[in-house]
């Protein structure tokens, strides 16, 4: 009788599981998770660009950007009640963020398990670059920044916040050097994340064709550069006093500045409410 084949005792890094319905099975697999991650990343990229384009209205003056803020709430005209579509978009983006982070965390855990003991002598990386090796750190910085940014300008935790007056809220905030540097650093981290991410997503989605392969790298670098240059220009130009608040000095609470509080009709009521 033939001798039994000697089976290796290499242990699996994950438990065998019962087969699940299709979408669960798909998201359970690492390849599926990366696909979801790439799609959610793409959604977030769409958000980042539209957000940047909207913010460029800052340079057209206070009226323009405040009206833009209003227009976001009014989307899509009178087809839906006010802010309904905005909330749909917000929830969609929140969900995209949530799955993106969930996939990032679980895949990172898998990868730690797959390389439980690391090399004992220095590695010499040939292809992996700084951006690709710091994805999880740049991602965490972006997450922390996002929370800070929402608190700062959407929920209005700062002392000068006035609902509806996006222009002055932004300028007052960015006049503080510490806050300006937070914006600069976070956007550099986002740029780094996108330098790799906006290329990586093509691979994860299986979008690979010799005709476009060179373009994919250029796209990622160009996209990251656009986001960084655009977003960093705001704190920079405010710090350089190219963009100034329309009223008041840097540290004057808005409540003392009545003209500022009444510029936008929609903002009026809230402003009255906030600062009686």
């Amino acid at each position: 009788m033939a001798q039994a084949v000697q089976r290796s005792t290499v242990a699996k890094i994950r438990k065998d599981r019962r087969k699940a319905p299709w979408p669960v099975e798909f998201y359970r697999s690492a390849v599926g998770k990366k696909w979801v991650m790439a799609l959610s990343g793409l959604m977030l990229m769409g958000f980042v660009v539209s957000h940047l384009v909207g913010n460029l209205k800052l340079y057209l003056g206070r009226e323009e950007i405040n009206l833009y803020g209003e227009a976001l709430r009014d989307m899509p005209g009178h087809l839906l009640p006010r802010t309904v579509l905005l909330w749909v978009v917000r929830i969609g983006l929140g969900a995209a963020f949530a799955v993106h982070i969930h996939a990032a965390v679980t895949l990172t855990q898998t990868n730690r398990k797959a390389r439980s003991k690391n090399y004992q002598s220095p590695r010499d990386y040939l292809a992996a670059n700084y951006a690709s090796r710091t994805m999880r750190y740049s991602g965490v910085i972006v997450l922390a920044y996002l929370i800070f940014h929402l608190a700062d300008l959407t929920w209005g935790a700062g002392p000068h916040h006035l609902r509806g007056d996006a222009y002055n809220n932004l300028v007052y905030s960015l006049q503080r050097p510490l806050i300006a540097s937070v914006y600069v650093i976070a956007n550099l981290a986002l740029g780094l994340h996108l330098t790799h991410g906006a290329w990586s997503m093509f691979q994860s989605l299986g979008v690979n064709n010799p005709r476009i392969n060179a373009f994919r790298r250029h796209f990622a670098r160009g996209f990251a550069a656009l986001v960084v240059v655009g977003n960093v220009s705001f704190p920079l130009l405010v710090q350089l006093h190219v963009v100034e608040p329309t009223c008041g000095k840097v540290r004057t609470p808005i409540a003392d500045e009545r003209p500022c509080a009444t510029a936008i009709p929609e903002a009026h009521e809230t402003a009255e409410g906030n600062h009686p």
Binding site: V31, A128, Q203
Partner: peptide
């Protein structure tokens, strides 16, 4: 996936491969 980690598209494998297999196959 039950034995190995998940790809983050570093491209380190392609650079190390003695047969210069392309990561295009990973996308496929």
């Amino acid at each position: 996936e039950s034995y190995f980690g998940s790809c983050t598209n570093h491209g380190e494998c392609e650079a190390a491969c003695p047969k210069e297999i392309s990561i295009d196959f990973i996308a496929l």
